[in-house]
Design a binder for these strands. Structure first.
Lengths: 234, 234
DNA sequence: CCAAAATTTCTTGTCGACAAATAATATACA
DNA sequence: TGTATATTATTTGTCGACAAGAAATTTTGG
């Protein structure tokens, strides 16, 4: 076994190191390639990306700032756990952000925003059609994130995207038992939401977003309850 | 000339570097000691804190993650500007967070939370009494932050604290023309808010928080409008 | 005298190395 | 044999140095 480096990899531009590491680690964390609690080794990452520890560390500082990893001083750093005990705080925040971002989208969206939103909805519908749970999670998040963008409030979009990321992580945990029939309803609800946004009907946007969000929360809770019962049985 | 180190300074513990730099820079940015647009020089900071650039950079990465500084690649980094154009998005977010955190405090607070909140209110009243505008800003933020803590939702407290920081920065800009008579009203409103929280009256908490937040927003807008007219005249 | 190219200066991004702090292991002693 | 102590190993936090990019300056050519 020879360790010949066959990679056309080493071509890397100057400022791209941290971003590359950050993006990739972020994806791996959200996709549970690195499950919660996984140890994160700086030197290992340095070898893997063929760079020094300095840019690795800066990427880790960023991830820590977003709460995706936990760093104990002078000790190991690891992927942040999912806080199942305070799940309701997550749901509270998620529902509120669904509502407010949809409302603002109804107020402030521009024609080109609707195109983007509709494109994401097409992808979501395709994922549902294909019964691809992972794709559903991703495209649903992208759809609502696009709506939030149309609302043009960076404070809300910032928090909302964090919440969607966290939700993506939680759903990955349980996606095996994802119910593939119910989401058809979500496709219809998405279409309704698009319609009220296009109509600039703020009140109705709030109402639909709230119902939609609560549907999703209920679905997630049902998923967790089912899994909890399984855990109990073990 | 002998280079004997006469400093009692160099006593610094191992992991404390980044936090020290982060805390101090953050304060200086929020207090406008470093006004928006100020260039941030890594080597200068390194000399000032007598440490290498590595921990300085990690502190800067953290600050950038919170949007307090802007970093252009391969170019200088500087204190983030205040976005006066999209001020209304700030107000939207601020009012909503005032409301939701106060509501949650009414729901979930514990007896010891009220003690902390009341202590902050005492300090706020003292600041108003002393007509110390800077202290008013700080103690008002601490008061509402304490209420948010009692609500026990880290997603909301996180965003809310960021908003309060940003508000602190904006008000510093204009505190010279701060009207010292109106805030007496805020003291009363704070007392009312404490009362409804203690009563666990969620609906009324929402109503009072909303009125209070809108009062504050109006005051800030009046401040800015006045200053704008002055700018026009120049 | 002016514009384009070359050079210098300055700052940032990255690196390899070292020392402190902790964890793991081995040793001594009752 | 069990526990306390000493030693080793591993990993983190920090450092000084160097090279790449961009801005500032100088030089060159018209």
């Amino acid at each position: 076994m020879t360790d010949i480096e066959t990679g056309p990899i080493p071509e890397r531009k100057r400022g791209s190191g941290v971003k590359m590491v950050y993006d990739l680690l972020r994806d791996e964390i959200l996709d549970l390639v690195l499950p919660p609690g996984s140890p994160i080794d700086e030197v290992q990452l340095a070898e893997r990306f063929k760079m020094s520890r300095t840019p690795i560390r800066e990427a880790l500082v960023r991830l820590a700032g977003e709460g995706l990893i936990d760093t104990l001083p002078n000790r190991s750093t690891m992927v942040a756990n999912i806080d199942f005990l305070n799940m309701h705080t997550f749901f509270d925040a998620l529902v509120l952000m669904y509502r407010v971002t949809t409302k603002l989208a109804a107020q402030y969206h521009r024609p080109e925003d609707l195109k983007v939103i509709r494109a994401h909805q097409v992808e979501f519908a395709a994922a549902v059609q294909a019964q691809d749970a992972l794709a559903m999670i991703a495209t649903n998040a992208a759809f609502h994130s696009a709506i939030a963008d149309a609302g043009r409030n960076t404070y809300f979009t910032g928090l909302f995207n964090r919440l969607l990321d966290e939700g993506r992580r939680m759903l990955r945990l349980y996606y095996q038992s994802y119910d593939d029939r119910l989401p058809q309803r979500f496709v219809q609800e998405h279409d309704d939401i698009i319609a009220v946004i296009a109509n600039r009907d703020v009140e109705e946007a709030d109402r639909l977003a709230r119902l939609h969000a609560e549907q999703i929360v209920q679905q997630i809770q049902k998923l967790f309850a089912r899994e909890d019962r399984l855990d109990m049985a073990l």
